[in-house]
């Protein structure tokens, strides 16, 4: 579903992502973990088509993000870590706006909006302007707008930040449901327990380079993800003296 080949993104004086390659298969949830500044968000934003990259290739469902951006983006949805949403719109206005951009038929959009906004307990607030929403409500609205598209690939940057436990539970349910229907999820998180329980595979990034990728049980082995992560950090510190 997602194929990243030799992705490189440089900022002045720093390689944020360095020759990174990975794939996310259909029906799979891939967790993307790494310390602050490792390059997770940059990678996700490149995949979402928000950031330009210097080298490499990104394909979504076989469509090149560079050569066919509109077709590639039609297949996916992205949720940033801090979703800023048009404050002059009402919640329902924003959802309808997104549904129009993705060409979701009228009947389907009504059913989907109801399903997801009810689950996230947001329906009653959809008539209010986004400017009056709390961070959590914006996060939920962005989530509803993402699920509403029934994306083939869902990209999430720290999706659990700001969500209450009920919403987090429903989100995990919907992520599994999306994968059962053949979709894929690629998300970054610092909540290692969630990554361990939810993901089919785990990828670990350090200083822009992919240092580990594999099935969750293989990566974790006999210990837990936190131990693996800390062990990798220690190795890194030793390498750098």
């Amino acid at each position: 579903m997602l194929k990243i080949t030799n992705l490189t993104k440089e900022y002045p004086g720093k390689k944020a992502v360095d020759d990174l390659s990975l794939t996310v298969n259909s029906g799979e949830i891939l967790g993307f973990i790494g310390h602050n500044g490792a390059g997770k968000t940059t990678t996700l934003r490149c995949v979402a088509g928000i950031l330009d990259f210097d080298k490499g290739e990104i394909e979504i469902d076989g469509k090149s993000l560079e050569k066919k951006p509109v077709e590639a983006k039609q297949q996916m949805a992205f949720l940033p870590d801090n979703p800023d949403i048009y404050e002059f719109m009402t919640g329902i206005g924003y959802l309808n706006f997104i549904a129009d951009l993705y060409g979701i038929p009228k009947g389907e959009r009504e059913a989907r909006v109801k399903k997801y906004s009810d689950a996230f307990e947001l329906t009653g607030d959809l008539g209010s302007r986004v400017g009056g929403y709390s961070h959590g409500m914006r996060q939920k609205l962005a989530l509803v707008s993402a699920f509403l598209r029934k994306p083939r690939l869902l990209i999430l940057d720290e999706p659990f930040v700001g969500l209450d436990p009920t919403a987090a539970f429903h989100m995990k349910e919907f992520l599994r449901e999306l994968c059962e229907e053949g979709g894929s999820v690629f998300f970054s998180t610092h909540v290692l327990e969630v990554a361990e329980k939810l993901c089919h595979r785990i990828a670990i990034i350090r200083k822009g380079k992919l240092v580990e990728i594999g099935r969750t049980e293989e990566v974790v082995g006999k210990s837990d993800l936190e131990s693996v992560f800390l062990e990798l950090e220690r190795e890194d510190e030793e390498e750098n003296g």
């Binding site: 329902i92 549904a99 129009d100 060409g103 009504e110 329906t123 009653g124 209010s128």
Partner: peptide
């Protein structure tokens, strides 16, 4: 901001991009 929590979903108008 004034807000209310009594919105009921109704028909949604669909349009082009």
């Amino acid at each position: 901001h004034s807000s209310r929590s009594n919105y009921h979903l109704g028909e949604l108008a669909a349009g082009s991009q």
